[in-house]
Nucleic acid binder design. Structure first.
Lengths: 220, 220
DNA sequence: CTCACTTGTAATCATTCGATTACATCAATG
DNA sequence: CATTGATGTAATCGAATGATTACAAGTGAG
């Protein structure tokens, strides 16, 4: 214990632009898991493997950091949808095929953990002036994309969004790592919600947790 | 300032059982609006018109209070669904009529503000051991009720739950008091989501806010 | 080499928050 | 009336948290 003189501190210096991305990735996970209030700048710092003051200095305030995470998440979602639409158009798919493709694109976002959960956390923080405003405008942006670029009528869009919100909620609720519970309802509900994407969801969400990055660093 | 001798303190004593209900009602609003972490025992106390230590002594911990709010909300939801099912059965309604009735019962819960939002806040706090466990079991309880007592097959239940989650999300996002915004998408999205219940949602959610009870007390 | 800039942290501060303690005040009961 | 329990708060405490300051150490240009 006291004779631990081996590695006093690796102290590897990294370009600020790289650190910024690392912090945003860590913040996405932490905010997605604990929400705006429940997440602390120190948790983000530990998840990113750096000190808490660095996080604050890089983004000024916790609110700024959250907004940046939110903007990134929205951007990735919109890019994924645009890509799916382009793909569907290039293959001259039917309307239903395109909708399936959009749903798959949404589900695949789970691979980049934190995106959907950060969005969800932002949505239910509507009472915060800055965050709420950004969340609302972002949601409307998604709505308009689906309606205009995907030629969906309002009812179809609502349907699509509704399933997306259930998707997010079940993941946030952590029902996905209760697949082996004694209640047979769990797999039934999950299978009928996630369909062909269930394996992706379970495999990406069950693995790791918020503190994995910090733990790995400490262990190493 | 110093000559203020008019009303030093009304100090009306109320039975603890009544206070308990007042606190739970206030907590339901505060937790529903700000979530588990964002809500403070002092905000709840102010909304209930009492002191912060009283809130803590009555429920022991903030977590206990939240769980009790969650249990109440779940109970009210289940009661509302059971009532709707009984009503549908007594009138020998069709399957679709019953589903419409269930949807209406859900929407009417908005009248008791905080219920749906507290539930939603609990759902996305799945990482908290105690709250998460209760949220998951409650969600499964709802699922089973709809599947077994309402004779819905899993796909129908998922469909129903999905729309419920979008419902909750739009309210939490505060899109409902943006009806008069310049973006014509807002009324379109809201109308296609809330249908005939839009007026109820707008009228109950737009009015008042968390601090209304405390403000009224102070003003009086 | 040296100077200036970048990257990074330890230490600390002021606030906030949940919780505890001690105390006050009202009401019922004998 | 006096006693006792219920109702309620002021004061305060310790821990957590976002933010600030001061400082250390690496890096590249001239």
């Amino acid at each position: 214990m006291a004779s631990d003189s081996a590695a006093p501190k690796p102290q590897e210096r990294v370009a600020a632009s790289v650190r910024r991305e690392q912090i945003l990735a860590a913040a996405s996970r932490v905010f997605g898991e604990r929400g705006y209030y429940g997440a602390t700048t120190d948790l983000v710092a530990k998840a990113a493997g750096i000190s808490q003051p660095y996080v604050v200095r890089m983004f000024g305030t916790k609110e700024n950091l959250f907004v940046e995470v939110l903007d990134r998440a929205l951007g990735k979602l919109l890019v994924a949808f645009h890509a799916a639409l382009d793909e569907a158009a290039s293959k001259q798919e039917t309307h239903d095929e395109m909708k399936t493709r959009l749903g798959a694109a949404y589900a695949d976002l789970i691979g980049d953990r934190g995106i959907l959960l950060s969005l969800m956390q932002a949505f239910i923080t509507g009472h915060e002036p800055v965050i709420g405003e950004r969340a609302r405008s972002g949601f409307l942006e998604i709505y308009q994309l689906l309606r205009d670029k995907a030629d969906m009528d309002p009812d179809e869009v609502v349907e699509f969004l509704a399933h997306g919100m259930l998707f997010n909620t079940l993941i946030a609720m952590r029902l996905v790592d209760q697949l082996d519970a004694d209640d047979p309802c769990v797999p039934e509900l999950l299978e009928h919600t996630f369909r062909t994407k269930l394996d992706i969801v379970v495999n990406t969400v069950t693995k790791n947790d918020t503190t994995s990055a910090a733990d790995a660093r400490k262990t190493a």
